[in-house]
Design a protein around this nucleic acid. Structure first.
Lengths: 346, 346
DNA sequence: GTTAGCACTCAACTTACTAGAGTGCTAACA
DNA sequence: TGTTAGCACTCTAGTAAGTTGAGTGCTAAC
């Protein structure tokens, strides 16, 4: 009972079950395996082994007289230890992505779409978070009598704008002074390095215009906060209809909703960003995501990095029987491409 | 045959059929109508009338022994002539929207969501197109040795940024001069008013820095172009699962795809913007949209206007048997709210 | 340890039947 | 002439019963 071992034969059978199920989506029976593998065993023997595997929790039966399907534990085994890595089709995507947009959000949308189309699963991508990113340059300009424009350029040329209302009209000279003040104090810093004493000092130096300094700092803070509930783009939601196990009305509706609302996806992205394994790739099977509506899905995420401190997440959402090999390969490719793209541009 | 008239009684019956069908979504039979109306007619008489209405094309039978459902022509009749206008529930939404975000895209997303939640249909909203909008203010600043930042502020405080690479480093004075040059020539103009002679003149005045002037103009042009393939936000896509007539896999998949891809929606928005009827409200029933995947849907659109020349479209997408009264009411409310919001903010 | 054989199970499909809602038509009525 | 009662007919949706086939577990023999 408890001393059962995952010996070599069991592993081979397990592999055969999963491979077959990934392809067909149907429960697989003993007879199929008996032919599918090179073990030359009869279906009866396979049946015995399968009974063991079931007891061990790697496979389960939808109903008494059906074949077996992998359990979450079974998929996990497969992903962790049994998958073949293939490092091909790097080339295929190469050109597509490189010619792309310079605007960040368009690029991300394109990538999401590219992924969805290539894999036939749904995809998501989170905009890189910039909280560790440094301020490169600040500028206040007068838009009209009682409005100032504050432009903040961060490392990696991420730009934030804010319109600030002002009570008194400022002359050019004051504006210039304020700009110099702000830049000498703030540029080169990451937002999290800006502390209260620093702000107080700046306000002192700004004299009667201290409120403006306050406003600029607020604008900065807001820019950061905005970045923190990260922007997520999704694509290929309708791909879920390709997989009967996800396509019934109830599930489809909930899934579509999850893609649209995005707040659940944010959790997922946060999680994936925080967990630092060496490859940057993570696989969530079924309930491992903690997202109710994704019980019957698997999610594969990868972290990409543009320069220092700017990390985002790409993810593929599909049925549990997704083609993990291919998905992981594709994600690796794309993250490499993004790296390359960034290095070329700066 | 051909001399059949839509007399009073037929209209009343027609109305009863549609009302009933809007509520239930089931084909309605003669007996139901005979009770539903105050006409005090037997089901047999109603049957005769219904046969007429069918011949005239206002209703149809899904199959021989079922009741009747309205045809597109029937819905059209209803929307054009028979609908009760109700101008209520203006109040209910009032507060929700006013406290909202200052960032345009967030506002639009919120509005889309508000609509979807309130109506239980899918919604879309297009960002206001700015092509007629005037340039308020331009500014070039030096980010580092070989990069300039061009900020363009348009009327209504719409801001565009562009990073320009430059070959030679510019000193502060030249930069100031260029800024003055650009602002004196361009501010106050709508992008379409900027013509070639004007550009040439500016380049002349800029002397050796004429390439920069060219770059700025390009950046402007690009900003406009970007605005022209209009941004559209959607919400409530999963609401389609509430209506069995849209919820089967095939249709749902296509619809979800249409919402996601958005290019088809763009056509719709274009159309709705170009057609100027006095109310700004338009109803597309079934094939009137020309969008294949929306054959079984109706779309109601409304145009909103923020200041001069900045018009966008809001739309509700639902089943043909949508509650047209309510939808039109809600759209009117929202467009008013948007107007108000704009007036308050400027 | 492996396998052939057999009884058993159960979802999925087919077929036949029933109920009920609705129609069109005819004939009678006011 | 318009309205209505009545009736035969149609067609979907739902139910029940039977059939098929893939698959299992178990036993006994190799």
């Amino acid at each position: 009972m408890t001393d059962m071992q995952l010996d070599d034969r069991k592993i081979k059978i397990m592999q055969a079950i999963i491979r077959n199920y990934l392809e067909t989506g149907e429960p697989v029976g003993s007879r199929t395996i008996s032919k599918y593998t090179d073990l030359n065993l009869s279906s009866a023997t396979i049946r015995n082994e399968m009974a063991d595997l079931e007891e061990m929790g790697y496979i389960l039966q939808p109903h008494t007289s059906a074949g077996r399907i992998p359990s979450d534990k079974g998929y996990r085994l497969y992903v962790d230890t049994m998958m073949e890595k293939k490092d091909k089709e790097l080339e295929e995507l190469k050109e597509v992505i490189l010619e792309k947009e310079d605007k960040m959000d368009n690029l991300l949308k394109q990538v999401a779409k590219l992924l969805a189309v290539n894999t036939n699963y749904a995809s998501m991508i989170s905009a890189p978070a910039v909280h560790k990113n440094k301020i490169k340059f600040l500028q206040l300009s007068r838009v009209d009598k009682n409005q100032l424009l504050a432009v903040i350029v961060m490392e990696g040329n991420i730009i934030k704008n804010n319109i600030l209302p002002v009570a008194e009209e400022l002359d050019d000279e004051t504006l210039l002074k304020l700009n110099i003040l702000l830049n000498t104090h703030l540029s080169g810093l990451a937002p999290e390095e800006i502390n209260l004493p620093m702000i107080t000092r700046m306000k002192q130096q700004a004299g009667i215009h201290s409120t403006i300094v306050g406003d600029v700092v607020d604008a900065l803070a807001e820019g950061i906060k905005e970045e923190e509930d990260l922007e997520i783009y999704t694509s290929g939601a309708n791909n879920i209809f390709r997989y009967p196990e996800l396509a019934d009305q109830q599930k489809a509706s909930e899934l579509i909703n999850t893609f649209e609302e995005k707040d659940k996806l944010t959790e997922l992205v946060q999680d994936s960003l925080s967990d630092n394994n060496e490859t940057g790739i993570q696989v969530y099977i079924g309930n491992e995501t903690q997202i109710q509506s994704m019980q019957d899905c698997s999610v594969v995420t990868a972290t990409y990095e543009l320069g220092e401190g700017m990390r985002g997440t790409i993810g593929i959402i599909g049925p549990k029987r997704m083609d993990y090999d291919k998905v992981i390969g594709t994600l690796k490719t794309i993250t490499h491409q993004l790296d390359e793209l960034y290095n070329k541009k700066t």
